[in-house]
Amino acid sequence: MAVNVMLADDHSLVREGLKSLLELEGDIKVIAEAVDGADCLSKLETVSPDVLLLDINMPVMNGLDVLKKLKDNRSNVKVLVLTVHNEIEYLMKAVDIGIDGYVLKDSESSELKKAIFTIAEGETYIQPSLIPQLNSKRIEKDKDGAKIDNLTRRELEVLKLLAVGKYNKEIAEELDISERTVKNHVSNIFKKIDVTDRTQAAVFAIRNNLIEIF
């Protein structure tokens, strides 16, 4: 029995190429296509693919937001992210949300089909070339988690405000504390998360999803 697949990508040529490639041997059938994230969610209300091939960069709603919506709504559809993004941060975010698979668009067709069949059978598939980076990033994240746990509630508040670009005076006013107290908190934060300046502290906060970047 063929695996039913839905394609979500804003480039029509990509969708056409994928459809032709996947249906070539008859073991995969493309039953629906979506041109953006919102269109994808809308069509999933009326179709039930075994696997959703999801691009990250799409208008209206990006792939990671679509994935989060599906997981929040307890959708049963298996999601395979097919993307040009080889930056490990995207993969980490997808894994944290609950991805079923992640493959780069420059992979071989045999690898893409293997990922689809693996996911359809209920297993997870991450492109093998990305796994060493993923494991390294997980170790780094575990270390960051320990550093975050070591921050006091107030230090965490100060770090978040610092990370969005607020100066000590602005932080003091928002938290109703003195600038001297803020300065002491910043110094303690730097020591606890092992950074030397505000930029590094902001990067730490962004990397660990302590603040949202729009």
Results as ranks from 00 to 15, higher is better:
184 N>F: 12
75 S>W: 03
78 K>H: 09
156 L>C: 09
141 K>A: 15
129 S>R: 15
84 V>T: 12
79 V>M: 02
119 I>H: 00
81 V>D: 01
14 V>H: 07
7 L>E: 01
201 A>H: 06
149 D>W: 13
41 L>G: 06
28 I>S: 01
208 N>H: 00
70 L>P: 09
176 D>S: 13
175 L>R: 04
190 F>D: 05
3 V>S: 07
162 L>A: 09
159 L>S: 04
157 E>A: 11
116 I>S: 02
62 N>E: 07
173 E>P: 07
84 V>L: 12
66 V>F: 01
150 N>V: 12
51 V>F: 00
101 G>S: 04
112 L>I: 12
139 I>T: 14
203 V>M: 13
73 N>S: 10
210 L>H: 04
127 Q>K: 09
179 E>G: 15
28 I>F: 09
185 H>T: 10
134 L>T: 03
93 K>Y: 07
187 S>R: 13
116 I>L: 02
16 E>L: 15
159 L>G: 06
199 T>W: 11
120 A>G: 05
165 G>T: 03
45 E>V: 06
200 Q>V: 10
17 G>A: 05
6 M>G: 05
200 Q>M: 10
188 N>K: 14
130 L>W: 03
206 I>H: 07
99 I>E: 01
193 I>A: 08
213 I>W: 07
30 V>C: 00
46 T>R: 14
80 L>F: 04
26 G>H: 02
89 E>R: 11
113 K>R: 10
98 G>E: 00
181 T>N: 09
15 R>S: 05
130 L>G: 01
80 L>T: 08
169 K>R: 13
47 V>G: 06
183 K>Y: 13
91 L>T: 06
15 R>W: 06
165 G>I: 02
136 S>N: 12
8 A>W: 03
197 D>Q: 08
75 S>F: 03
149 D>C: 12
13 L>Q: 12
114 K>F: 13
22 L>E: 02
24 L>H: 15
209 N>Y: 10
5 V>T: 04
124 T>P: 10
166 K>I: 07
191 K>E: 14
46 T>K: 14
155 E>N: 10
166 K>F: 11
87 E>I: 05
21 L>A: 08
24 L>C: 15
122 G>M: 06
1 M>I: 10
42 S>T: 13
101 G>V: 05
8 A>D: 02
151 L>D: 08
101 G>N: 04
93 K>Q: 14
40 C>K: 02
109 S>A: 15
114 K>G: 10
148 I>L: 12
33 E>M: 09
89 E>K: 12
91 L>I: 08
103 V>W: 03
13 L>S: 11
68 K>A: 09
19 K>H: 05
169 K>S: 15
180 R>H: 11
209 N>P: 11
11 H>A: 08
2 A>M: 13
77 V>H: 00
172 A>R: 04
138 R>H: 15
102 Y>N: 04
85 H>S: 10
64 L>D: 01
211 I>G: 05
114 K>A: 14
146 A>Y: 14
167 Y>D: 13
149 D>T: 14
190 F>C: 04
87 E>N: 11
26 G>N: 03
19 K>S: 03
37 G>V: 06
73 N>I: 07
9 D>V: 05
67 L>E: 00
47 V>D: 03
184 N>W: 09
77 V>N: 00
173 E>W: 10
34 A>Q: 03
189 I>Y: 03
83 T>G: 03
182 V>Q: 00
43 K>T: 02
120 A>W: 05
85 H>K: 11
74 R>F: 15
185 H>C: 09
26 G>A: 01
67 L>Y: 00
200 Q>S: 12
